[in-house]
Amino acid sequence: MNTVPKVAVVILNWNGLHHLQKFLPSVLASTYPNLQVVVGDNASTDGSVAFLKGRYANEVTVIENKENYGFTGGYNRVMAQVEADIYILLNSDVEVTPGWIEPVVQMMQADELIAAAAPKIKAYRKKDHFEHAGAAGGFIDKLGYPFCRGRLFYEVEEDKGQYDTSGEIFWASGAALFITGRHWKMSGGFDERFFAHMEEIDLCWRLKNMGYKVMYCAASTVYHVGGGTLNAEDPFKTYLNFRNNLFLLKKNLPAARAAWVISIRFGLDLIALLRFMGEGKRKDAWAVSRAHQNFVRKVFQRSPVAARQALGGQLPPNMKGLYKKSIVSQFFIKKKHRFSDLDPADLE
């Protein structure tokens, strides 16, 4: 009997043929002994499926979605057709390194409370620096602003080994997300209302509300290009980020706390809208307004994925990785631009 946990690397693709050609070989070169590589395709029109079936017919399982369901819907449909002890949700624009899977699996196997984990995520184009979307693990402040160890807002740090200690975090980046099959099914997967952006934070928050752990594994490194689907200048990305952050708060905070935090966020978002206007970014300003309108229309709509679920009993919520202060004030007013500048006593 094979006692090595089965791991499935699941890559969601949408018109990413160039990324698959460049980065899939590094995934297939992984040394983990019980590995399945799956590419789920969101109705690409660039020849991705033909390439995979022609070049990697014996090495890659291809699952085709009938249409582009976005990051959340696409993954939910693909993952329903894959069985594994541990899933790795991996962006198509990620280059992996030798031995990247083994230390994370070892960490997860050592503690049954660990539901999800993240490797160190560095920038593909600037490999001595962390990457914006994950870095050395995700955290969140008391007002719901996400940030990373190694990246606060637009300040991305050089990796000098300062975050080479593994430990608990609040959220793991969807660019390279390890999650056990049991916890994926228990949580219900991604909330498809998010479409893309912050869906992994919502998933991790739900798991933490159930009492489970999310970890950062410093012994594993991947390199992420970033911005492969929506670049930072796309107003649709602005819309998703502002709207989904409000969904995140409404779903995962207690009702009274959520109402208080969201009221503050509306005011701060208004400041952001005015800043966009002052910078001549009218489409981004309008995106913030549309985000608020959409949230208000759906504020009483029940989420298709429950905010808290349990299997075999309820554990107390685990808020490790919650920053007790405002990262906005710490960064913009007190000029603390590195994670190491923050007082560790202010982290749960």
Rank of each mutant, 00 (worst) to 15 (best):
L20V: 05
S48L: 07
W286F: 15
P33S: 04
F295V: 13
T180K: 02
E64D: 12
R206Q: 09
G144D: 07
V328P: 02
V37A: 06
G228C: 03
H224R: 06
T61F: 01
Q293A: 14
Y75D: 10
R149F: 08
S340K: 04
H183W: 05
K160S: 11
D341T: 02
H337I: 07
Y87H: 13
A258S: 09
G54N: 12
L17E: 05
V4L: 05
Q109C: 13
A255F: 02
N65M: 01
A175F: 01
T229D: 11
F23G: 08
G211Y: 00
G313N: 01
N68S: 10
V39G: 08
S289G: 15
V78E: 07
L270H: 13
N15M: 05
G174M: 03
I86P: 04
D341R: 06
T180F: 02
F339T: 05
W184P: 10
L248Q: 14
R206F: 05
Q309S: 14
F190V: 06
M198Q: 08
R265N: 15
S263I: 06
W205V: 12
M108R: 00
L90C: 13
P25F: 05
R297C: 13
Y223I: 01
V305D: 08
N65Q: 03
V305C: 11
A110L: 03
R151Y: 03
V49H: 01
G138I: 00
F71K: 15
Y69Q: 11
S26K: 00
F331A: 08
V299Q: 11
L342E: 09
Y212G: 12
G181L: 04
L28F: 04
S289R: 09
G138S: 04
E59L: 10
S26C: 01
I169E: 02
R243A: 11
G47W: 01
Q162R: 07
